[in-house]
Simulated assay, not measured.
Amino acid sequence: MKKRQWQNWGPGEQAEQHYLVQPRALAGGGDVRHISEFLRASGWRDKSKKGGPLLVESPDRTVRIAYDPYVLPGGWTIHGRAGSRNSEWSAHLGRQTPVEIVAGLTDALTRPRSAHAPNVWAPLEEQNWHTRFEGQDYTATSPDGTTWMQYQQSPDGTAMWWTGAKDRQGHGWTANFTPSTPMHLVQAFSAELASPDPVMRPRGRIPLSAQIRTRSVSVKPSQLSAWQQARVTSARAAAWAHNSARSTRSRATARPDISVGGARAHR
């Protein structure tokens, strides 16, 4: 094992073939660690059972994120408990939803909410998606027609966000969010959904689709490791800054110690 590591990770390491894939929505699921390691570094608790599906919980225990590839249809389930600012909400994302797009939502769960009013459609319109009303529904479709996002309202008053991607062969994924899902999270998701940037996949992990464009790149294992570590480091730094700020606010609002003549006063 040591010899193999020296050959692949040392000064003479071998570059490996990867592919930059566009559109990103059709690139396949990707490496789940892109999400799980970021959340752990952000202070989320790993509640997974050995050999079982992924399950992580937010530090305040209000949100749980699960990924289960062992059942059909499988995929991501994100559930938020009712709190002072939100009603109970949930999101379900198919197994082939690219992790980079899922991370738009899950990363946003680790950050403070912006003071600006969220606009789910803004990132899509910035990338020239086509928007239209269809009865009670509002839909945005990517310029190549492979990806969509829709706010659906049924005659009985129920509503949901529905999104996904599909090629001409019918391969792809869908996802849905309850209407109570915080809007800033849906916007963070839509921003990654609409991003024109390609995503990287290793050889052998590219979906077969005539609508995918790929570009071959050679990447060293140490480069991949450095990119992954940079993402984890940024999560740890953000978590540290958030905890430090919260600790400072707690000390600032703590009740002062009232003393009389050098002795503590008691009631």
Rank of each mutant, 00 (worst) to 15 (best):
L55V: 11
S48T: 08
L39K: 03
R40Q: 12
V56D: 00
A41N: 02
L55F: 02
L54N: 05
P23M: 04
A27L: 01
L54K: 05
R33Y: 03
H18R: 14
F38K: 11
E57V: 12
L54Y: 03
H18M: 14
S48C: 06
L39V: 04
S42K: 09
A25Q: 14
P23C: 08
V21R: 12
G30S: 09
S48V: 04
L26R: 06
A27G: 14
K50E: 12
L54M: 14
Q17G: 00
L54S: 05
L26H: 08
Q17L: 15
P53R: 06
K50W: 11
Q17E: 15
V21C: 15
P53F: 13
W44E: 11
L20E: 15
S48E: 10
H18C: 14
R33S: 13
Q22L: 13
L39F: 07
L39G: 05
S36H: 05
K50A: 14
R40T: 03
V32Q: 08
L26M: 10
L26I: 05
K50M: 11
K50I: 09
P23L: 03
S48L: 08
S58L: 02
R40V: 05
F38S: 06
Q22Y: 01
K47P: 00
V32M: 04
K47H: 13
G43C: 02
I35A: 02
S58C: 06
A41S: 13
P53G: 12
G51T: 09
R40F: 03
D46I: 02
G43N: 02
G29V: 09
L39I: 05
V21S: 10
S58Y: 04
K50F: 12
P23T: 12
L26G: 11
L54R: 04
G43W: 02
G52Y: 07
G29W: 07
S58G: 06
V21A: 08
I35P: 01
W44N: 10
G28C: 11
K49P: 00
R45K: 14
H18I: 06
G43Y: 01
I35E: 06
H18V: 10
G52L: 09
L26A: 12
G29S: 14
A41F: 01
G52A: 12
S58M: 03
A25C: 15
Q17P: 04
G51P: 10
A25K: 01
P53W: 06
H34I: 00
G51L: 10
L54P: 08
L20M: 15
